[in-house]
Simulated scan of single mutants.
Amino acid sequence: MSRARNGWVLPVSLLVALLLGLVPMPDVLQPLRPYWLALVLAYWVLEAPDKVGLGVAFLLGLLADLAFGGLLGEQALRLVVLTFILDRFRARLRFFPMSQQALAIGGLLFNDRVVAMAVHLVLGEVQLPWAFWAAPLVGMVLWAPLHLVLDTLRLQRRG
């Protein structure tokens, strides 16, 4: 049984993830903001590696750097590292149970925070608050519902 693929879901989901990163939040909750772009990109790297790879991650990261007004190339580097690791272990991760997949994604999001901290450290910028390290936990909790929503949209039959 072949399922119809909805080609619009990929670009729209990445755009929505980018826009979710721009939504203002109170200063208290800002460090807990999940890295939506990384979560959605991780889904697509696992489920459609022929459409999303290192090049897309780099371009998406540059676009995010421009949109968020940060250091040009920081998010591009972070997303490329995440995509590389996911692509390397894709064959195993795809078939993990959802709970183990969420733990793996949490580890990758934690690794993303380490890369971000290293970039800030090298540049001599102000160190990020301790709550900054809680965002990977939020992303890990959101992985299963996000995966379910994107799977439903991607595999939905037309008509």
Results as ranks from 00 to 15, higher is better:
Met1Leu: 06
Ser2Lys: 07
Ser2Leu: 11
Ser2Arg: 08
Arg3Val: 14
Arg3His: 14
Arg3Thr: 10
Arg3Tyr: 12
Arg5Ser: 15
Asn6Gln: 15
Gly7Thr: 08
Gly7Pro: 07
Trp8Ser: 11
Leu10Val: 07
Pro11Tyr: 06
Pro11Gly: 08
Val12His: 06
Leu14His: 07
Val16Ser: 06
Val16Trp: 00
Leu18Asp: 02
Leu19Gln: 07
Leu19Ile: 03
Gly21Asn: 08
Leu22Tyr: 06
Val23Arg: 00
Met25Thr: 12
Asp27Glu: 09
Asp27Pro: 14
Asp27Trp: 06
Val28Pro: 02
Val28Lys: 05
Leu29His: 03
Leu32Pro: 06
Tyr35Cys: 10
Trp36Leu: 08
Leu37Met: 12
Ala38Pro: 00
Val40Tyr: 04
Leu41Asn: 09
Tyr43Thr: 11
Trp44Asp: 03
Val45Ser: 01
Leu46Thr: 01
Glu47Thr: 09
Glu47Met: 05
Ala48Trp: 02
Pro49His: 03
Asp50Met: 05
Asp50Lys: 00
Lys51Gly: 04
Lys51Thr: 11
Leu54Ile: 02
Leu54Ala: 01
Val56Gly: 04
Ala57Arg: 03
Phe58Val: 01
Leu59Thr: 05
Leu62Lys: 00
Ala64Asp: 10
Ala64Trp: 07
Ala64Val: 08
Asp65Thr: 05
Phe68Ala: 11
Leu72Ser: 06
Val81Ser: 00
Leu82Cys: 02
Leu82Glu: 00
Ile85Val: 15
Leu86Phe: 02
Asp87Pro: 01
Asp87Tyr: 01
Arg88Thr: 11
Arg88Lys: 14
Arg90Lys: 15
Arg90Glu: 12
Arg92Cys: 02
Leu93Gly: 09
Arg94Asn: 13
Arg94Tyr: 05
Arg94Ala: 15
Phe95Val: 15
Phe96Trp: 07
Pro97Val: 11
Gln100Gly: 04
Gln100Met: 10
Gln101Thr: 10
Leu103Gln: 13
Ala104Gly: 02
Ile105Asn: 05
Ile105Lys: 01
Leu108Cys: 05
Leu108Thr: 04
Leu109Met: 14
Asn111Ser: 15
Asn111Trp: 13
Asp112Phe: 10
Met117Arg: 08
Met117Val: 12
Leu121Pro: 02
Leu123Asp: 06
Gly124Cys: 12
Glu125Ala: 12
Pro129Glu: 04
Ala131Ile: 07
Trp133Asn: 00
Trp133Ala: 02
Ala135Gln: 13
Pro136Ala: 12
Gly139Ser: 06
Met140His: 09
Leu142Gly: 04
Pro145Gly: 11
His147Phe: 09
Val149Cys: 09
Thr152Cys: 03
Arg154Phe: 09
Gln156Arg: 14
Arg157Asn: 08
Arg157Cys: 08
Arg158Gln: 15
